[in-house]
Design a protein around this nucleic acid. Structure first.
Length: 355
DNA sequence: AATACGGGGCG
DNA sequence: CGCCCAGTATT
């Protein structure tokens, strides 16, 4: 299988030309200042499904607030989420803190340098495990992400569907064979830089590619057709009414979301599912659900928000309290200024201009 | 093997 | 509007 793919492939030449290019052209990124395993770890978690440019300011702020595993381990989860606010995939933040606590308690604050212990930490999957072991600890471990699969699917003209789990394993096998044993850290990062700047999804710059001469797809002119990836199905739409409830002290009603599932433990303005309740029953439902009597006023705005798997259709309404006895501990009345302290999803940040 | 889980940028 | 991005956990 793998041996067939590697037949006639010049691994040493490939490594040499790739690394030679990388040493001259590597991007100057905040998490590349040193090999601190904690920094590598945080950056890798943030970079999951997220562009470098998006991550940079978050990484800076995160490191100022939580410079080592010890600060993060003892931090308040809400503060961690606040630092993560807007970055998305919030379970990454919660899992990271949970794992860091384990590192402090079980490994005396030292990030494990072996696959078994590292891979057992929450939020560290096959990719992140390999990334930390190679980048921070110079071990020749594969770190196969979207970039790596794109680059190598083109280099070896591999036509397997990269959306399949087993395809990633195939690429891991492949990388184990071709990775530089002298500088696996640079090798893995070089592939990622190559994928981000030259071997891009659309219109790859093959004429500038340092390893173009090794690329089978380029040789046959089919680089644009690879990698093969089955497309995701389209999102379902969920419609909600969102209430901006103000009391007579000019405070607004906010609610903490459940500790699991979508946007877990973030805060929001009360949302009412229009599928289950309907526009007319809203006030009654709020009374029953939250124990707060409200009078719904005018509709202010309408917006949609797209997630990876669903789409929210939100109708924003102004509302006032008639009787504000809050019995539910998930609920709070807070001033416009106090709202800043709570982590909110982007969809609800968009509504704050109406407060 | 399929699905849940964010948000932004680009053509 | 669909696609892509330094993926992981759960079912």
């Amino acid at each position: 299988m793998i041996t067939q793919i590697l037949k006639n492939f010049n691994s040493f030449g490939f490594q040499y030309d790739l690394l030679d290019w990388y040493y001259e052209n590597k991007r100057d990124l905040p998490w590349r200042q040193d090999q601190d395993p904690y920094k590598v770890w945080v950056s890798e978690i943030m970079l999951q499904q997220t562009k470098v440019d998006t991550v940079i300011p978050y990484f800076q702020k995160f490191m100022e607030k939580f410079p080592t595993v010890y600060e993060l381990a003892k931090a308040d989860e809400q503060e961690v989420l606040k630092t993560w606010e807007g970055l998305g995939y919030y379970s990454r933040a919660r899992n990271l803190q949970s794992a860091v606590k384990e590192v402090v308690e079980t490994y005396d604050g030292k990030v494990p340098d072996n696959p078994k212990e590292l891979g057992s930490l929450k939020g560290i999957g096959p990719y992140t495990k390999g990334a930390i072991l190679s980048i921070a600890y110079d071990l020749p471990e594969p770190a196969v992400d979207g970039n790596v699969m794109r680059v190598f699917s083109r280099v070896f003209k591999i036509e397997d569907d990269i959306a399949q789990l087993k395809t990633r394993k195939k690429f891991e096998e492949l990388v184990r064979e071709v990775i530089s044993k002298e500088d696996p850290s640079s090798f893995n990062q070089a592939i990622m830089d190559l994928g981000a700047t030259i071997c891009t999804p659309k219109s790859p710059a093959c004429l500038f590619c340092p390893v173009g001469e090794y690329c089978q797809a380029f040789a046959e002119g089919v680089q644009e057709e690879l990698p093969i990836k089955t497309k995701a199905k389209k999102q379902k739409t969920l419609s909600y009414m969102v209430l901006l409830v103000k009391n007579n002290k000019d405070e607004y009603l906010i609610e903490k979301r459940l500790n699991e599932g979508l946007l877990a433990n973030l805060w929001q303005f009360p949302m009412i599912s229009l599928k289950e309740v309907g526009l007319e029953g809203a006030a009654e439902w709020v009374q029953k659900e939250y124990g707060v009597s409200v009078r719904v006023k005018d509709k202010i705005d309408h917006l949609t928000h797209v997630f990876s798997h669903i789409k929210w259709d939100l109708s924003i309404y102004e509302a006032v309290t008639v009787n504000e006895k809050v019995k539910d501990s998930r609920l709070k009345f807070v001033s416009k200024e106090e709202i800043e302290e709570f982590p909110f999803p982007v969809s609800h940040q968009k509504m704050m201009k109406f407060l």
